[in-house]
């Protein structure tokens, strides 16, 4: 069995007096699409931000590709960050730059490629997310779905082996949601990217997930394959995948 790409051990996280993550341990397998799911407020985004190093570790340890972020020196941390792409919940595009410039930022800042090649790479990424026509627009001029696709193009600008997506399909219509899912799947199969999704959109989970981590009230309730999750008898998981209809 291949070594996990992410290992979380005994992680706990508090906001003031509230325990958001309670001694959780999990592993994310390489080359697969893993989904961290659970009800709103169960600690999914907090876990993601800890993995990304955006929240400092309070208790426990997180290893990404075998390296513990907290023990790395600054240049190594930067190198590790360059090997991860992140699609934030609201896109987090830089409003003062056009879509094209947004996608070009990581390439211009972190590579020494010639300008023409960067231009072609940006056009390719925008073509992949279906935004060729919007490259000169500014983020406030984009719809919610376009903003997420532009943010995805920026997240994959450096072809990172590890891609994190925080609620990629939240608030999108089913057609846009499906096309975004297809794109994530393509990145996983074509580029062998390990994808970590944080979501509670069941249609997306059913379409994409190879591996599932289910959080409930700050604890890992389940981790395993999607098939195992779908056949789980644990009440919170059953309720999640098979919600009772209003009459029940």
């Amino acid at each position: 069995m291949e070594a996990p790409v992410i290992t979380v051990e005994n992680l706990s996280s508090r906001f003031e007096d509230r325990l958001v993550l309670n001694n959780i341990s999990l592993t994310i397998p390489p080359g697969k699409i893993s989904v961290i799911l659970g009800k709103s407020g169960c600690g999914k985004t907090t876990l993601l931000k800890h993995i990304l190093g955006l929240y400092p570790l309070q208790e426990g340890e997180i290893k990404i590709m075998g390296a513990s972020m907290s023990t790395l020196d600054e240049p190594s941390q930067k190198d590790l960050m360059l090997r991860m792409g992140v699609l934030f919940q609201n896109g987090a595009l830089l409003n003062s730059l056009t879509v094209f410039e947004n996608v070009a930022v990581p390439l211009v800042q972190h590579t020494s490629l010639p300008e023409e090649l960067i231009e072609e790479l940006v056009c390719l990424k925008l073509h992949l997310v279906g935004l060729d026509h919007a490259m000169h627009l500014y983020p406030p001029q984009l719809s919610g779905g376009m903003r997420k696709r532009a943010a995805l193009a920026r997240a994959i600008a450096l072809d990172p082996p590890l891609l994190f997506c925080d609620e990629p399909s939240a608030g999108l219509d089913p057609v846009t949601m499906a096309s975004l899912d297809n794109l994530i799947q393509m990145l996983n199969t074509q580029l062998e990217m390990t994808v970590v999704l944080v979501t509670h959109e069941v249609p997306s989970i059913r379409r994409l997930a190879d591996f599932v981590v289910f959080l409930d009230e700050g604890k890992v309730l389940f981790q395993g394959t999607l098939t195992e999750a779908l056949s789980s008898e644990l009440p919170p998981i059953r309720e999640f995948f098979y919600p009772p209809s209003p009459g029940e």
Partner: peptide, 12 residues
């Protein structure tokens, strides 16, 4: 430019 630093997470 991305440099190699020989960290375990970097596939050569």
């Amino acid at each position: 430019m991305m440099k190699k630093r020989g960290q375990p997470f970097q596939a050569p």
